[in-house]
């Protein structure tokens, strides 16, 4: 009787999780396995898959030994990620610190900082292109520099290969800092106020309070934001299309644009899958190390 009841209960429990497992398997695990499988073939995505030519590790070998454009794209994405990890997250953290205090119009600021996040990347890219460019735009940046008597710094920010990627990175930071801001703010609000009051009673300065209470307690949140920033930034591409139309002779090339080029430009689906797998492994490795680092910092 007891056994029957346990069996029923187990079946019921499995019944509840079955839909989620099914959906996850169907839409995540199966495509992942398929992509991995496809990455060992030379296939144009049109002829029946049975006619695809198996190439073994050939696609991966090509990525690692014969495709400098791929690694240039990865370096470019890495550069944007470094800017996002530093500039974007510091900005987000400082703004979250400011909004964690009792200031006027706090909700308005929170809303305003989050607006860029919900905008489409293409729209943000095209809007900033218009704001930055001169003859086909409003030339706002150069005008501001002129107003600040810094007109000698005026520049074709997006057309110059030396500044295009940095400009892309800064626009990406503008678009993305709202996420970090929101998560940091939520993290800051979970720190018990009593700790700050106790520190104040003990005569701790603002800097000591920040260093000894805020930073250690916000560290897990920083780790989370850092992982999300890396994952989000490395996959950037639509913003680049909006800003500079594409890879700009390789200067704004990023891995997702390379994968798209392999699929759509060259009809090399197998190679694109191998690039996708390689890119996925890079992201998993980065996230793993970040996680370890964040855990060590917490300890």
């Amino acid at each position: 009787m007891k056994l029957e009841s346990t069996l029923k209960s187990t079946l019921e429990n499995y019944g509840f999780i079955f839909p989620a497992v099914l959906i996850f398997s169907l839409f995540y695990i199966y495509p992942f396995v398929q992509i991995f499988h496809l990455s060992f073939f030379d296939w144009d995505g049109i002829v029946p898959f049975k006619d695809a030519v198996p190439v073994g590790w050939g696609n991966f070998k090509e990525i690692f030994s014969q495709d400098p454009t791929w690694w240039q794209a990865t370096r470019n994405a890495g550069f944007i990620t470094v800017i996002a990890l530093t500039f974007q997250n510091i900005l987000a953290f400082l703004l979250a610190l400011a909004c964690d205090r009792e200031i006027r119009m706090k909700n308005f600021y929170c809303l305003t900082f989050f607006i860029p996040v919900v905008l489409s990347e293409i729209v943000v890219g095209m809007t900033w292109r218009f704001l930055i460019n001169d003859f086909d735009g409003a030339n706002v940046v150069n005008r501001m520099l002129g107003a600040l008597s810094l007109s000698h710094l005026a520049h074709h920010w997006l057309f110059d290969p030396r500044t295009a990627l940095t400009t892309v990175a800064l626009v990406h930071c503008w678009k993305g800092f709202g996420w970090g801001f929101l998560i940091f703010l939520a993290g800051l609000q979970t720190i018990p106020r009593e700790l700050y009051e106790a520190a104040r009673v003990d005569g701790a300065s603002a800097w000591e309070t920040f260093r000894n209470i805020t930073v250690p307690l916000i560290m897990p949140v920083m780790g989370l934001v850092a992982i999300l920033t890396v994952l989000g930034t490395m996959q950037i591409f639509a913003l680049i299309i909006g800003l500079v139309g594409g890879e700009f002779a390789g200067h704004t090339s990023v891995p997702v644009l390379r994968i798209l080029a392999s699929m759509q430009g060259s009809s090399r689906f197998g190679y694109a899958c191998a690039q996708g797998m390689t890119f996925g492994m890079i992201l998993v490795t980065l996230s793993f190390f970040q996680y370890r680092l964040a855990r060590r910092a917490r300890v």
Binding site: N133, D134, F135, H156, L158, F159, A164, G246, F248
Partner: peptide, 12 residues
């Protein structure tokens, strides 16, 4: 050539 011609998609 127009400035930034290689950063233009045809729609632009």
């Amino acid at each position: 050539l127009a400035e930034g011609v290689v950063t233009m998609v045809n729609k632009t």
